[in-house]
Amino acid sequence: MAIRVQAEDFDVGAELAALTDGNPSIGGVASFVGLVRDMSKGDGAGGDSVSAMTLEHYPGMTERQLAAIEAEARARWPLDGVLIIHRHGRLLPGDRIVLAACASAHRAAAFEACWFLMDWLKTKAPFWKQEETPAGARWVAAKEEDDQAAERWYKRAP
């Protein structure tokens, strides 16, 4: 079980190395790193650029939900290691928000499980983003496509 919710940044290379150290049966690791975007490409609500973001969460329930998501991934794919690190607090564009990584004997399980972790995390882990823009602070609205991305794993469950 490797779930961490923290304000501090993390070292992706060191984390991935630690995930596989001492287990030569692992054939590969798939990972996803989520970053704070400045929305300068005009895809933010109202097209305002984002100068900072604050992530609020529900201590206790966050860890509980992430652990449940990890358990679900382990039940669906043959995984030798799972790691989820999610940050909270105030972050700047370019800062790392989240790391999800899955280690397995073969790449298909690692890739699929990592994608699953992120899709489920997006709709189940109790985090909320508030963006700072020139027009003021605004809460990020949940996206319909995130719900759809999570839904498809119900249909694809082996």
Binding site: H57, K124, W128
Partner: peptide, 23 residues
């Protein structure tokens, strides 16, 4: 997570929040 028909009792911790936006 629960629905709107879930029982509540004294001593429960009940949280109300908007749809989540982490990740």
């Amino acid at each position: 997570y629960v629905g709107l028909d879930h029982p509540v009792a004294p001593g429960d911790e009940v949280a109300l929040f908007p749809p989540v936006t982490g990740g």
